[in-house]
């Protein structure tokens, strides 16, 4: 393997990592406050389509990114409305979002572009050369050289990881979010408005998932395809658990799972292992997550009040 090959492989891996990372961060933020969001696959689908739509209409990916954030907030608000305002079942609400996303995006794809399966391809997307962030002085160094020519979205993913970490562990709001996830009753006693904090966490998290969706359609690829996000949201969910509900854990897990996604091409290029069927490498994230949950490889514990609706008057 040459240096160039190593670097391209790593860059490719980072491309796969980014959507997983955003999905996982969405999960971290939302579940830290005690709201399970299995609808994040659906939110990513929304983000992917609207991200593409914004980029397509304005011919610049920046508007696409904004569209992704906007639609993420909207769908997140819907989830929050159902689960926080009306104490709906969080898993049911998430399922509804996933199912609606499946149907509605296909509908909109047909309605806006009159095509089925694929949207038109974008010229200006974050993966295009002129939108990449060039750090040419790194180019010749093995491994680090992979960072010489990355999409803006990948850097945004790293920045968001740090931001979520700072938010959760170094601000008052973060402490409140975590209190709401661990013990909402204690939070209420301390004068924290649990509902408002959860609203913030869910909507902000969903905005991240929206960016993650946009990262698929306007960064990793240059268009929307009807199969998106193809389960990336669920890998993100797995990454969140594997990373033990922390931002940097999620980053590590996303990197690992991203590697799993391109394990095929790594095996093919290096020949370090006999050729495996794709199915055998694709299941890795899920098997690892189950192993972690079952306590075979360290133990991953969810926030104590995760998934429980909060009734203020209940004793």
């Amino acid at each position: 393997m040459t240096i160039v090959q190593i670097n391209t492989t790593i860059a490719q891996m980072l491309d796969y990592t980014t959507p997983i990372l955003f999905a996982a961060l969405c999960g971290v933020l939302s579940e830290s406050s005690g709201v399970v969001n299995i609808g994040l696959d659906g939110i990513m689908r929304f983000g992917a389509f609207f991200g593409l739509l914004g980029a397509f209409m304005s011919n610049t990916p920046w508007i696409g990114l904004l569209f992704g954030i906007g639609i993420g907030c909207l769908v997140g608000a819907l989830h929050a409305f159902i689960t926080i305002k009306w104490n709906g079942d969080q898993t049911v609400s998430g399922t509804a979002i996933n199912v609606i996303a499946t149907g509605l995006m296909t509908y909109l794809l047909e309605y806006v572009f009159s095509t089925t399966g694929y949207s038109p391809q974008l010229q200006n997307y974050f993966g295009a050369q002129e939108y990449r962030i060039h750090l040419l002085f790194l180019e010749k160094i093995p491994v680090i050289g992979a960072f010489s020519n990355l999409s803006f979205m990948i850097w945004l993913g790293f920045i968001c990881t740090i931001l979520v970490h700072v938010l959760l562990y170094h601000t008052v709001l973060g402490l409140r979010i975590r209190t709401c996830g661990e013990n909402p009753r204690a939070a209420t006693t301390l004068g924290i408005n649990v509902f408002r904090v959860r609203w913030f966490a869910v909507v902000a998290g969903a905005a991240l998932a929206g960016i993650g969706g946009a990262a698929l359609s306007i960064s990793s690829f240059s268009g929307f395809s009807d199969s998106m996000p193809n389960g990336v949201g669920f890998i993100g969910l797995a990454a969140m658990i594997f990373g033990k509900w922390t931002p940097f854990g999620a980053l590590g897990a996303a990197l690992l799972f991203g590697t799993g996604q391109i394990a095929q091409s790594i095996i093919a290029v290096t020949g370090i292992a006999p050729k495996l069927a794709p199915g055998l490498t694709l299941i890795l994230p899920y098997v690892l997550t189950l192993a972690v949950l079952a306590g075979f490889v360290g133990k991953s514990v969810a926030p104590a009040a995760d998934g429980l609706p909060y009734y203020k008057e209940q004793r």
Partner: peptide, 10 residues
């Protein structure tokens, strides 16, 4: 039909 179904579940 997915839209209807998802909305009903919602």
């Amino acid at each position: 039909s997915n839209i209807i179904e998802g909305l009903a579940v919602g």
